[in-house]
Lab assay of single mutants.
Amino acid sequence: MASQGTKRSYEQMETDGERQNATEIRASVGKMIDGIGRFYIQMCTELKLSDYEGRLIQNSLTIERMVLSAFDERRNKYLEEHPSAGKDPKKTGGPIYKRVDRKWMRELVLYDKEEIRRIWRQANNGDDATAGLTHMMIWHSNLNDTTYQRTRALVRTGMDPRMCSLMQGSTLPRRSGAAGAAVKGVGTMVMELIRMIKRGINDRNFWRGENGRKTRSAYERMCNILKGKFQTAAQRAMMDQVRESRNPGNAEIEDLIFLARSALILRGSVAHKSCLPACVYGPAVASGYDFEKEGYSLVGIDPFKLLQNSQVYSLIRPNENPAHKSQLVWMACNSAAFEDLRVLSFIRGTKVSPRGKLSTRGVQIASNENMDAMESSTLELRSRYWAIRTRSGGNTNQQRASAGQISVQPAFSVQRNLPFDKPTIMAAFTGNTEGRTSDMRAEIIRMMEGAKPEEMSFQGRGVFELSDERAANPIVPSFDMSNEGSYFFGDNAEEYDN
């Protein structure tokens, strides 16, 4: 993207840094990872977990959730003011799984939030270390993106479920800051804005008074975040219109849905970061690795190297396929839920299948599930090659597409044709070009129609051997075009429920 120079890199967003050079960025990201790792080690000690239990991804998720809940100030305040039966607002906890007599047992633990905050700050040299908290939120978000298709949420806001490739980060909490905003897809931002506008339509006082002023500035800020994701002048001009509207209503909703559809071809720039579970960072720190000293990046080879040398386990339900569970977590670790499966298959070195073909449910185990038949197995999170994460949407291309997802959002900077089903997408653009945004709409449609099938995206960008740390010898991959490109292809993934 041309304006790259004016933006802070995501590592800076990730670490609240002012302008830093590459070495400083690597050190501050490393410091953040160190903090998460030290916190995780301490929690495993508190909970008396064995090494194996500490490497269980379900335990990692519970521990991450506990610290996120302990620092969720708004919710904590709300819980104190609106006490609900049987919930102690000062405590947080969740299921911890232990191996007892050759069987997995679930144990519900409860801790004072104050105590968890103390352990977290102690692991982070006394700081609140917001960057580390956001990092864990993005890992949870990436896992949700890989596990669930947001059909219901899309339909509720009037969008087409086939636009799911635009929904990265749709389950990120509001408090995820600049680093969170960077990884949100165009569809996620559109959905947040539509929800806001709908509230304004239904509630006369939404934009009024002292609160209304705050609401208005939040609305304009979200519009600017979305505008910054678009790469064409016409899309940005249309966002200006939406932002400046005196009284946002149905016309703005129409414009936003139009823009979301246009992003299936004229893709937005959305950041991709490899955020790993805390149970990967903990053992690495415990083994003596100093992330701050060595430096770390979320968008280069580092996460690949770390996963190459990590042992992570997962509980497996009786009829689940461990290899499929591994694929789910591998995609989440690489922030690749909406990437082209052919690119992923090449990088991973084994075939990556669409969601609907995987015999696996989510990673988390519900409290009512029976533990008797639970097994555990090693997650295979290694890769054959590594590639640089991208934040450009890439230019655009036609490809055989599917009944489910009709476009992709690249996660890796790797040369390819970008699949999208042009006739299906263009069919949504018939007729409606009147109104105050008509010239911009016409211009956007013209650009979409001009998108050429034979153009290559990320020209000359390749993948790298894991021994090639400096990215000196790019390998331009070859793809098996007979395979499906979309992950949520004609899909039956479970729906995400809060």
Rank of each mutant, 00 (worst) to 15 (best):
N59V: 11
L256S: 12
F479V: 03
G169C: 06
Q459W: 12
A387L: 00
Q327G: 03
R199P: 08
Y111G: 02
E375W: 12
I301H: 08
C223L: 14
L264P: 07
P322I: 07
D480L: 02
N368G: 15
R400S: 07
D72V: 08
S407T: 15
M440D: 14
Q459D: 03
G17D: 00
D340P: 02
C333F: 04
E81I: 13
D34F: 12
L49E: 02
F488S: 04
P303G: 08
A181S: 12
L143W: 12
V29R: 10
E53P: 02
E24A: 07
G295L: 04
A278P: 09
R213P: 04
V186Y: 08
I194E: 12
I25P: 01
S482Q: 02
I253W: 12
I197H: 01
E244L: 04
K351H: 12
S9V: 01
G209D: 10
P173N: 08
R204F: 02
R208A: 00
A123Y: 01
G356Y: 11
V100T: 08
L298W: 08
Y289C: 11
S383N: 14
I197G: 02
L344W: 03
L193Q: 15
S3M: 12
E24D: 05
R213C: 03
V155G: 12
E14A: 03
E434Q: 14
I194N: 02
I96Q: 04
K293C: 01
E294M: 07
R441H: 15
G17A: 12
E254S: 07
L315W: 06
M167E: 03
M137R: 02
G356F: 08
E465C: 00
A129P: 04
K198F: 09
T188Q: 12
I316C: 14
E369Y: 14
R150A: 06
R216E: 06
A27L: 12
A263S: 13
A233D: 01
T23M: 03
I96T: 13
V183E: 07
S345P: 11
R8N: 00
S335I: 07
L466P: 10
S310A: 15
K452N: 14
W207I: 02
P354F: 05
M481Q: 10
T15Y: 02
A27S: 11
S376I: 04
S478K: 09
L379I: 14
S165T: 14
L358I: 13
M43C: 10
A387R: 03
F230E: 14
A373P: 03
S297L: 10
R150Q: 09
